[in-house]
Simulated assay, not measured.
Amino acid sequence: MSSRTARKPSGEGPSLEILRARMDEINLKILRLISARASVATEIGRLKHLEGGEVYQPVRERAIIERMIAENEGPLTNDQVKRIYVEIISACRALEHEPRVAFLGPEHTYSHEAARMRFGSSIQLMPLESFAAVFQAIENGRADFGVVPVENSTEGSINLTLDLLIDTALVIIGEVLLPIRHSLMSLSGDAGAVRRIVSHQQSLAQCRGYISANFPHCETEAVASNALAAQRAAADGTIAAIASKAAGEAYGLKTIASNVQDVAANTTRFLVMGTRPIEKSGRDKTTLLFAVADRVGTLNQALNLFARNAINISKIESRPLRARPWEYLFFVDVMGHRDDPKLARALKSLSNKALFLKVLGSYPEGRSAAA
């Protein structure tokens, strides 16, 4: 008997053919269960339509994924389980309505990756030319949601996003914590041919140590996005792009080096923007901005309102107040939902003391991709 058709001797476990037959049966069961789930999702969508409910339910979707992770006994990792269920939920959601999600384009930017991480693949992608265009697309109804970066663990806050949050009527409905793993890529993959390194200004800053140590002779150039940098590198063999591996693959680039960011745990926080506030999830964060009178102790008094109500402040940052030199707006992240009694009490007290107060949104606290 040839090795191609040989069967395992008895006592050594099931043969390859038996295992494959078992796999085929399981695949059919999975398909039937997914189809049944989709049918239930369709009926839920019909009821939500009658009641005027939202198609996208981030709190409910998060609860489903967290329960599946809690029940996971392996061998799949929690991150693999999460990705599978993000896609199942995305496909079922699309039977009700395929969300239009705006982000800084072109495709294959980190914003694109963050949008896919949050909403899955069954969405209408809207790559736009700027953060302002993302906000505008949601405000005028061309997009349902938007994903914009707000801060990086290495380089700090992204001021363009903070400035847009000041005047917008949109609300924050979620956050995505995306690990950033930069690769240096070129058309040939030959480090010796590189004369210029191109990337988004944030990415160049996140890799300045690597560039200085390994390519001190090269010029650097900031462009609008990492995906655009990959496009440039695909058209010129002397240019290397710092971008994601996905961007490099999309434009036919070869990797010179991987993980070239200066800090290994480099993470960017993205905000998910929408038009309507969302309900409590039980583990929430609230982002607000306020201004206080330019007098000694006023900021301290404002922040003490949170301490008195046992509310943790996870971040505070200032931005200049337009048309009023040397006065500032304060962006603050606190733990909890605006409808929580303690936080509601603190916000009411703050509104009486502040010159200006705006709650930008309460939303489920984000977790990194590996969480």
Rank of each mutant, 00 (worst) to 15 (best):
M1V: 11
M1R: 08
A6L: 11
A6K: 15
R7Y: 04
K8D: 09
L19T: 07
R22P: 06
R22Y: 04
D24P: 02
I26E: 09
L28H: 13
K29C: 05
L31M: 07
I34R: 09
S39A: 15
G45M: 06
H49R: 14
L50D: 11
E51T: 15
V59H: 13
V59K: 14
E61Q: 13
I64N: 10
I64Y: 07
I65Q: 10
E66T: 14
M68D: 00
I69N: 12
E73C: 07
T77C: 00
T77Y: 00
N78I: 11
V81W: 05
K82S: 03
V86G: 03
E87M: 00
R93M: 02
A94I: 06
L95S: 07
E96I: 10
R100Y: 11
R100I: 15
P106S: 02
E107L: 10
E113Q: 14
A114V: 05
A115Q: 09
M117G: 13
F119G: 07
E129G: 13
S130T: 05
A133H: 10
Q136V: 05
N140Y: 11
D144R: 08
G146Q: 04
V150D: 03
E151T: 12
T154R: 01
N159M: 15
G174N: 08
L178Y: 13
I180Q: 00
R181Q: 14
L184Q: 01
L187Y: 12
S188M: 09
D190Y: 12
A191F: 11
A191T: 10
A193C: 11
Q201S: 07
Q202S: 11
S203D: 04
A205D: 06
Q206V: 02
C207F: 06
G209S: 09
I211R: 01
F215K: 06
F215I: 11
P216M: 00
P216I: 01
C218R: 11
E219G: 14
A222G: 12
V223S: 04
A224K: 05
N226M: 07
G237P: 12
I239M: 00
A240S: 11
A247C: 02
A247G: 01
T255A: 03
T255D: 00
T255I: 13
V263W: 03
A265P: 15
N266C: 05
N266A: 04
P277R: 01
P277V: 01
S281D: 06
S281I: 03
G282A: 09
D284T: 11
K285H: 02
T286W: 10
T286I: 08
T287F: 15
F290A: 05
A291K: 08
V292C: 11
Q301E: 12
N304F: 10
L305R: 07
R308C: 08
N309P: 10
N309L: 13
K315G: 07
E317D: 00
P320R: 01
R322M: 00
R322P: 06
D333T: 14
V334G: 10
M335S: 13
K348M: 03
K353I: 14
K358L: 05
L360N: 06
L360I: 06
P364E: 09
E365W: 12
E365P: 08
S368E: 12
